[in-house]
Design a binder for these strands. Structure first.
Lengths: 338, 338
DNA sequence: CCTTAGCACTCGCATTTCTTGAGTGCCAAG
DNA sequence: CTTGGCACTCAAGAAATGCGAGTGCTAAGG
């Protein structure tokens, strides 16, 4: 009863603050929401909410704003997730369906997400370690140099040049290529290490050195976890709330350029549904006053990688969650079709 | 004589303004530079320079700041291009030499450039239209779907899926692939249109439909001028001068996300040396108060694409020109080695 | 004809002071 | 538990003030 009203007050405060970006007072609250009680009553509830750490006052004589904890409670218990309108669905589908390759999917997705949520969008390339080999190609550049092309079933492509100690003939390359293919084709990248070891051992001695170079490079490319790429879009939105808000966007931009940090954040997401990380919860310098809404995409549930948005803590969580969720589902579908 | 001193005054104004970011007055000028005349004399010169449009006063009782025209004159006639220190050379070389593939080169380059110049850096992927075919690969995904991989001699890779109307055997794919390779291998992309037409015509009638699909897709991928990509880095530097300066960075960020606009700007660069576009000269909304310093890279002079930096008009032009030039040369070399 | 000292004038900016009003907490009554 | 009343606080905006950097002009000197 009483608890219920307090929660309603918190919700009202979050909603008002998100839309106006100004501390909200007791009087304004009763006017804008039909709470059925007087401002004085609200004030008591507010005092209680403040004691519990859900809201705070910027200055003694100002209204209240939600704390990180307040947003957390709001997101966990109060945010009503509205479904997408059919128009939105159609827009998303249309925007994504024109993609010609993986790069294109990534770029389109990040733009879409930025545009829909009006926030900074992040999309992680599908992780190699969770994919399988679609194809491997060896191309000779000169007699002692090869180009190795590695294609994952997600459409992701890696390339490496390989230096061979002694000249190798086209014919031998062809042979190595054919053998390599039979061994690795369709195999998950995680199994590659053992498979390739056997492959080298099974080669005739004459081929071993070349085979060793190739498998070493292949493994190196396949295990590339450091360089996992993240595409970024809509950074201009950052400046937008900078307008009316004293958030220093430089540290945010700096944090967003730290691929390593982002990778960690995106990687931490759980496998199902949307993950919301609020303010300090991100535990990243520069992102203390921002929130992160992410979801995994690809492989229906298993999740190849993450995508999401970064915005100020006073963002429209319901909307962001909805959009991120929807986009992740569509991207999953698009990737499956390819 | 007199002209000489006026130019010296302009140079001094630009230099002071670039380093302090504050309007510079006559008194400060004579103190910081040994001009050998009194402030009153400088004032006369300043008045003349203002009449000619090279400098301007923000307010009646303030010092002068250079206009776009002033910077232009400075860049064209006054900027002394200092050579890189050996330490800088080594740093650049080291930073770039670890790259494993083209994507890596692009990413490293943009980071390097942003770090060295402390500005926003831009790097354009090597243009396909100016490259040649290194390799083409056809991979069957299902009986009616193929994956086409196109590798340019710059290391750039494009992929496309092809839908074939009727099932096609592995053997036929192999044959098509072999033929295709002999036709297009090593050929410049610009010649592809005519070559491919002949290719289809020379096929046996039974292969024609499949061949037509393939060549159409190949051409589409090869002619991909719209989607030419640009990598962006160091956007956090934008916020830096925002600190002390009332430049609204939102329009700048927005402009930087408009790939099309950037492509035009980067494409306009002349083929030799460094191009500097100052303030209004960029003729792009949102970039009126920024300057662009770009250079072509690749193919020793011919130029595959451009790279450069974007900064406020009051930037260190000499330094930027020097760095952009140096980096473009190193990137050219790195790409040639691959 | 160029240079320079002197001088009156302008005006942005920082500082201070004042006012206003939204919002609060508390108390006593319903 | 709710509510009206009331004194209190304090950020933010407006107005007033002074400072000082910088200018343009004039007249004298090389």
């Amino acid at each position: 009863m009483l608890e219920d009203r307090r929660l309603a007050v918190l919700r009202a405060i979050v909603e008002d603050y998100v839309s106006t970006h100004e501390p909200v007072g007791s009087k304004a609250l009763v006017e804008r929401h039909s709470l059925g009680v007087s401002p004085a009553t609200i004030r008591n509830d507010m005092a209680a909410l403040e004691d519990e750490g859900y809201i705070a006052q910027p200055h003694t004589s100002a209204g209240r704003i939600p704390t990180d904890l307040g947003y957390r409670l709001f997101v966990d218990r109060l945010a009503a997730v509205k479904p997408l309108s059919s128009g939105e669905r159609r827009a998303i589908e249309q925007f994504l369906s024109g993609a010609v390759d993986l790069d294109d999917v990534m770029v389109r997705t990040v733009r879409l997400l930025a545009q829909v949520t009006r926030q900074v969008a992040l999309v992680q390339y599908p992780s190699l370690t969770r994919s399988s080999v679609r194809h491997v190609e060896l191309i000779s550049i000169s007699t002692t140099r090869l180009l190795l092309i590695l294609i994952a079933d997600t459409g992701r492509i890696e390339q490496r040049t390989i230096e061979i100690n002694e000249p190798i003939s086209e014919q031998l390359i062809g042979e190595l290529r054919a053998r390599l293919l039979t061994v690795v084709m369709g195999q998950p990248f995680s199994a590659l290490a053992t498979l390739l070891e056997q492959f080298t051992e099974n080669c005739e001695p004459s081929l071993r050195p070349a085979a060793a170079s190739i498998t070493a490079t292949l493994l190196d490319a396949a295990m590339e976890t450091v360089d996992e790429r993240i595409v970024l879009g809509g950074t201009a939105h950052l400046a937008r709330y900078g307008e009316a808000f004293p958030i220093d966007i430089q540290p945010v931009l700096e944090a967003l350029e730290e691929q390593v940090v982002l990778m960690r954040l995106m990687g931490e997401a759980t496998n199902s549904g949307v993950t919301v990380r609020i303010g300090q919860e991100t535990d990243v310098e520069g992102l203390q006053s921002t929130s992160l809404v992410t979801a995994r995409y690809g492989r229906h549930g298993q999740g190849l990688a993450s995508l999401g948005v970064v915005g100020p803590t006073h963002m429209d969580y319901a909307g962001a969650i909805r959009s991120v969720n929807a986009v992740s589902q569509y991207v999953t579908r698009i990737l499956e079709e390819q």
